[in-house]
């Protein structure tokens, strides 16, 4: 009953396979992306490849994918430079659909920016010494003789569809370790798979937020002759007058000094 080698299962999807099917070297189109504010964004999981391995496939359902993407979308919905974020069901994407498929999405859902999320999840289960108790049959129900590991990687790439340019990317990772009895292995691996996706999504949201901030800085600080992206505004865009922290702080400090000076002079 005690096995030396772990049993393994892997599920994955690849952005490169989706965007550049059958190409060994992805073609990068030169040009500067033009971002028209406020942005209309779509977020989708790229179609997954068939799962590989000997373990029963846990995986992630369309509904669960939609919930995870909904969490990502909600995190960025409040930003005023984003007009809308659509969660795009996987049924809208064809395996190997490429930029042609993204152009269709652009026409169908009116999105200019797409966040493509790919994943790679590997699950291992290996018997430990307690699995010797499995020989008693009852032990398979009582002793946690299986050690289960779930490693999940989510990768979000943000593309400007018209220019076909990658704007930025961010990863999200998680690791779930667990032990179980032999009869519980399937159920526990399925739960760990979901939990792994949830934790990796949390990490992905954190990393996307910091990458977005870094991208904003890059756009702002790029030299005029080699811009990272050109920013344009749609008519009707909202704007406002803001004193801002540095200006308000400066004015208040100077007024305070003037008041102090006035009192001393008096």
């Amino acid at each position: 009953m005690l096995r030396d080698s772990p049993r393994r299962s892997e599920r994955s999807s690849s952005v490169v396979d989706f965007l550049y099917p059958g190409q060994t070297e992805p073609v990068v189109t030169p040009g500067v992306p033009v971002l028209r504010l406020p942005l209309r964004v779509g977020v989708a999981f790229v179609p997954a490849a068939a799962s590989r391995g000997v373990l029963p496939s846990g995986g992630i359902s369309e509904q669960q994918k939609s919930l995870l993407l909904g969490r990502v979308a909600n995190e960025f919905k409040g930003r005023q430079f984003i007009q809308s974020i659509e969660v795009i069901p996987s049924t809208y994407l064809r395996p190997g659909g490429g930029f042609g498929n993204l152009d269709q999405l652009r026409g169908l859902l009116s999105v200019d920016i797409v966040v493509l999320v790919s994943f790679d999840q590997v699950q291992f289960t290996q018997e430990n010494k307690l699995s010797l108790a499995y020989w008693t049959v009852v032990g398979a129900y009582l002793f946690k003789g299986n050690r289960n590991d779930t490693h999940t990687l989510l990768e979000a790439v943000v593309y400007d569809i018209p220019s076909r340019r990658l704007l930025f990317r961010a990863p999200g990772v998680s690791e779930v370790r667990d032990t179980s009895t032999m009869v519980e292995v399937r159920e526990r691996l399925r739960a760990a798979s979901l939990s792994g996706f949830g934790l990796a999504t949390d990490d992905l949201i954190r990393n996307l937020t910091s990458e977005l901030t870094a991208f904003q800085e890059k756009v702002k600080n790029a030299a005029a002759d080699s811009p990272v992206a050109r920013i344009e505004r749609r008519p009707g865009y909202s704007g406002g007058g803001a004193a801002g922290s540095w200006f308000a702080g400066g004015v208040l400090a100077l007024l305070g000094l003037a008041l102090f000076w006035r009192r001393r002079a008096a």
């Binding site: 005023q80 704007g239 007058g241």
Partner: peptide, 14 residues
């Protein structure tokens, strides 16, 4: 005009 402003677009005209 070059910044993805957090919040909204600043309007210097104001």
């Amino acid at each position: 005009s070059a910044v993805l402003t957090e919040g909204f677009r600043p309007v210097p005209t104001a």
